[in-house]
Amino acid sequence: CITTAPAFATDTIKAVVIDGYPSRALWVKEFTNFFIPAVDARLAKTGNYKMDWQESYGGSIVKPKGVLEGVKLGLGDIGIVTTIFHSSKLPSQAIAAVTPFVSSDARAVSKAVDEIAKEFPAMQNEFKKQNQVYLATGVVLDTYQIFSKKEITSVKDLEGSKVAGAGMNLRYLEGIKDAAGVRGGLTNFYNMVQTGLVDHAMLWPEAAATFKMAEVAPFMLDVSLGAVNSKTVTVNADYWKKLPDEVKTALQTVAVDYRDHLAGLAMDRAAESIKAYEAAGGKVTKLSDEERKAWVDSIPDIATEWAENLNKRGEDGTKMLNAYLGKLKDAGHVGVRDWTAK
């Protein structure tokens, strides 16, 4: 993929960037508007190399679930992997999902996860097995909240009801009496609530605003289940090997900036979205501290489950978990429940 021009000129390096999500998705748009110009600017300083970007998003090469395999097989050189699809291949990526009720600050969570990825070998090993190199963690949602048709104020109100969710967050409901988690996707939460198929839906404020949830679920219970990492920028390992050091450094440095930039944007968006939700007739009720405590204590110990699973695989799951929570604590985010492994 790398073409070398005559020695006196700038070397041009082709890079195919892939994601299965369309270019209007927040993290994809920021890859185009932030990541790529930032790399170009750094490389322009010395003028030794110039990138020739080919951005292929929205299913033109891979679908959202196919990015991991696409980068692995060289269909893309750089990819934005949505890690929640790959619990089997990337188990350590669930680190934030198994520690709910700790932090709803996308910036803190993305920074902590990213540091864990760099300080412990587990995450990089998982990507290495998929023939790719880890670059950065992206957090695009601040926290899951509960959006309901009727006003609810306590966890008791969730008992015996149907709650729409997706992925790991369905497990947060396991301790609530007779509550049934119903699997849904972003595009059908609206319909599910509207028709009474479910009583509540778990999603984050930005998504709630985008999908006009206020129309069918005008009551938001501010539970603040927590921010979750779901995106990882990776590079195909064969491609990485051939990159000059200057380009590698540029990509790694910009990846960290992109991480913080994205998390900051996610927070801004979340705040705007709550306002938009309220302006559209939505009402926000805060769940009391005691209620949050009761809920989090009812959840099975998914964090220890996660850590032990990694330990079994020969990684330091317990230490990772403790270090991750320590980093959040240092940043001022102390969980309602102590998820450190027993």
């Binding site: 196919g66 097989l73 060289g74 269909l75």
Partner: peptide, 18 residues
Amino acid sequence: MRDNFDLSVNLLKVAIGD
């Protein structure tokens, strides 16, 4: 286009499975 037989095979692999 890419002078790469493996890449062609890989594309088959991804598309067929998906």
